[in-house]
Design a protein around this nucleic acid. Structure first.
Length: 293
DNA sequence: GGTAGACCTGGACGC
DNA sequence: GCGTCCAGGTCTACC
């Protein structure tokens, strides 16, 4: 069954897929040159389906094997629109990006949307698993969670959906630590899953919460395992772009770009992009650096 | 409020 | 093959 996902122009599916490394994290997959993607989704009904998302005129075309009920079709379309940020209006950002040569390619490539998971729960777990580890470690830890706890696709059991909060809450913390090899992050992921599964924390409500960004940031920082970097990363995924996810890469690039290689701290990173105001996270994310790092 | 050290894994390196 | 060192954010204890 095919679902046409109409996008507000300008839109580029490859630009979303290449917006960051999320497409390399299960249950996303893509083949070089990251032109399209696949995703294994568990519907509310419990049915597991695989999306195949390709570019098409005016947006993207999502195909799933077999037929979907009208409710499943609506659920899939809503999730896919969130994943691709199709309802985001980037015109105000493009207005400022046009004034900056280092952001010229954002406009030229119809970039600016950031690939995200269907649920904030999944993105929060993934973000926690990006901290204090090399990218290859994040890929491995997410892969392990999906392989060990994800619901298999009936068509191809080797493909699995991202585990539900209930499934991870029911997992043993030591198994998360030792078998999924999350290390010290295991209790953070388990506690998050447990709170969501018990209904103590409604993460998904934060997607549409009418909260000032500073308040939203406080909510995220209250989660164990989520510090300044992780909160800023999640805010970017939520479309709140006024904080920069400052990690060691940011420190290195700002040092090279603006300080002649001298060591810098978070204040220098913030100062380098402060003039972009509410868009400073976007300016940082899509900045065309002089070197490749 | 600021800082030091622990947390955990995997890769790089030297022997 | 083994041991050591290092990178990578966050938390906690301490000042």
């Amino acid at each position: 069954m095919d679902i046409v996902l109409e996008a507000q122009a300008p839109f580029s599916l490859p630009a979303v897929v290449r917006s960051h490394g999320w497409v390399q994290l299960a249950p996303f997959s893509s083949s070089d040159p990251y032109h399209d993607f696949r995703y294994v989704d568990r519907l509310q009904s419990g049915r597991v389906v695989t999306w195949d998302v390709q570019p098409c005129d005016g947006g993207a075309l999502l195909s799933v094997g077999g037929e979907l009920s009208s409710a499943e079709q609506r659920e899939t379309e809503d999730k896919a629109r969130w994943v691709l940020g199709l309802d985001q209006d980037l015109a105000p950002f493009y207005d400022v990006a046009r004034q900056e040569p280092r952001l010229a390619k954002v406009v030229e490539n119809a970039a600016g949307r950031i690939l995200r998971s269907p649920t904030l729960f999944e993105d929060t777990v993934k973000t926690i698993l990006t901290t204090n580890t090399a990218w290859i470690g994040t890929i491995r830890m997410v892969r392990s969670l999906v392989d060990l706890y994800g619901e298999p696709s009936p068509e191809d059991p080797s493909r699995r959906a991202f585990p539900t909060p209930e499934r991870l809450a029911g997992a043993d913390v030591e198994a998360l630590r030792k078998e999924a090899r999350l290390g010290y992050r295991a209790p953070y992921v388990h506690a998050l899953a447990d709170r969501v599964a018990r209904g103590d924390l409604d993460l998904e409500a934060l997607k549409t919460a009418d909260l000032p960004t500073g308040e939203l940031r406080k909510e995220l920082l209250a989660l164990k395992g989520v510090g300044a970097y992780a909160a800023a990363n999640l805010l970017m995924l939520l479309g709140r772009t006024d904080f920069i996810p400052i990690d060691s890469y940011a420190l290195k690039m700002v040092s090279k770009e603006f300080h002649g290689g001298e060591p810098v701290g978070p204040q220098e990173v913030e100062a380098a992009f402060a003039r972009w105001g509410e868009w400073n996270g976007m300016a940082y994310w899509f900045w065309e650096w002089s070197g490749n790092g």
